[in-house]
Design a binder for these strands. Structure first.
Length: 404
RNA sequence: GGAGGGAUACCCAAGUGGCUAAAGGGGGCAGACUGUAAAUCUGUUAGCGACGCUUUCGAAGGUUCGAAUCCUUCUCCCUCCA
């Protein structure tokens, strides 16, 4: 019996370790898994969410996928919306002062979050909390006690504090409270494991420390990598425009996935899909030997991702449409149609009026740059006589069909 | 409480009276090349039926034939000293 449980714990561990950067401490997680199997009691897995950014992209889903994995192994996921923090406005990171959010905004964001998160997580096995629930009632004395559990010296170990201090940049005293509040969330939940990106390492360890201080079993910190965006260099983020949003339309998602840097293919497979490591390794080999065209690997990647976030039917449709447009350099059949009344038009104006380009100037530029094709042939004049069923292509992706 | 620095286009950043719709870089878009990608090279990146006109350098006024640039007031951001 004991051996069987150890065996099961080990196999859970093996799955859990996929893609993770660090588990602190690893041995302790193994013990927790064993204990959970013995007691038939799921582990409490915690993830904190910032209520300011309700637009979830694939970067966020790296952590969500890991949570899902825990769920599939029978554990319990606790999401914490940091509504308390959001209400105060966290200025950490100095560059962007986060604005305070109203209660309505936070509730709205939380709703949007759920809608997106449950594309990955199993709703029935997810418990959602708002941290104002336990942070709001704290008295000044409680807060001071909490603050007393940590020292300034240890606080200064955090990278960005240390860096800012050295550079003589300001650090708000209340900024010290954020890791403590996040850690207190763990105490309130008595979390077994807290997940986060590598940037959360310090905060996760503060939580571990606080659990100990409050006399509970400390949590294990599990760090997932920060996913690179489609450019392959910088981290995925909405503001950098290198993101794939979970709410993106299937076709858009397909296109974006196809545009990622080749070096990211395996990484995306590992962190964003359920394709086995063995299979991923096989693909990697085949790509080095030239047996497998990276393009085809990407097609599969895109299908996998879209199947998870939308459905496999939509994934297939997106793929077919994509192949039609790009591979066969053909015109897709579901292109937007424009009904016109006048047939002799000035093309720049026509294109801008129909929202195909942003302005007549851009339309002129496109013509000058040879980006316009009419029925597949390059077209370099500004004036045009429209005909029924004429297809005008601007750049690589934009098409319109003329109806008269 | 005191001293100082700053705000320029999508972002960073140059520009201190006309030659500035505003250098340079990044990003975006387009073309070539490819694999549809990346890399590279080239072009382009306020609006307007357009060798001209309109709007744009934090905001509002003012000086001037002429202002991103000089003056006044205001708003916001940052740093240092106490």
């Amino acid at each position: 019996m004991e051996n069987l449980i150890k065996e099961q714990a080990r196999s859970q561990m093996e799955l859990i370790e996929r893609g993770v950067v660090e588990i602190l401490p690893r041995e302790e997680l193994l013990k927790k898994l064993e204990k959970s199997l013995w007691d038939r009691k799921p582990l409490r897995i915690k993830l904190g969410l910032d209520p300011t950014a309700p637009d979830i992209h694939l970067g966020h889903t790296v952590v969500l996928n890991k949570l899902r994995q825990f769920q599939d192994l029978g554990h319990e996921v606790h999401l914490i919306i940091g509504d308390f923090t959001g209400r105060i406005g966290d200025p950490s990171g100095k560059s962007e002062t986060r604005k305070q959010l109203s209660e309505e905004e936070i509730m709205e964001n939380a709703r949007t979050y759920q809608e997106q998160i449950y594309k990955v997580l199993d709703k029935d096995k997810t418990i959602m909390h708002f941290n104002s629930e336990w942070l709001m009632p704290l008295t000044m004395i409680d807060v001071l006690k909490l603050a007393g559990k940590y020292t300034v010296a240890r606080m200064m170990e955090r990278d960005d504090f240390e860096k800012r201090y050295k550079e003589g940049l300001p650090i708000g005293v209340h900024e010290f409270m954020y890791p403590l509040m996040q850690g207190y969330d763990s105490v309130a939940l008595q979390a077994d494991v807290e997940l986060g990106g590598t940037d959360q390492k310090f905060n996760l360890l503060v939580g571990r420390h606080l659990l100990k201080e409050y006399g509970f079993e400390p949590q294990v910190a599990l760090m997932m990598p920060i996913l690179e965006g489609t450019d392959g260099v910088q981290k995925m983020s909405k503001s950098l425009g290198n993101y794939i949003g979970v709410n993106d339309e299937p076709y858009e998602m397909f296109g974006k996935t196809m545009s990622i840097n080749d070096t990211l293919i395996c990484r995306y497979f590992e962190l964003l899909t359920r394709v086995s490591i063995a299979e991923i390794d096989a693909m990697k080999n085949q790509m080095t030997t030239g047996e497998l065209n990276p393009r085809d690997a990407k097609i599969r990647l895109a299908v996998e991702i879209i199947s998870t976030l939308h459905s496999s039917e939509e994934a297939t449709l997106a793929m077919e449409r994509f192949k039609l447009v790009y591979s066969q350099r053909d015109i897709p059949d579901d292109i937007p149609e424009i009904r016109v009344s006048e047939i002799d038009v000035w093309l720049p104006k026509f294109l801008s009026e129909n929202m195909i380009v942003d302005s007549t100037n851009e339309g002129r530029r496109m013509i000058k740059q040879g980006a316009i094709k009419v029925n597949g042939d390059k077209y370099e004049q500004e004036d045009i006589r429209l005909q029924a069923d004429m297809v005008i292509q601007v750049g690589k992706r934009k098409f319109v069909k003329i109806l008269i």
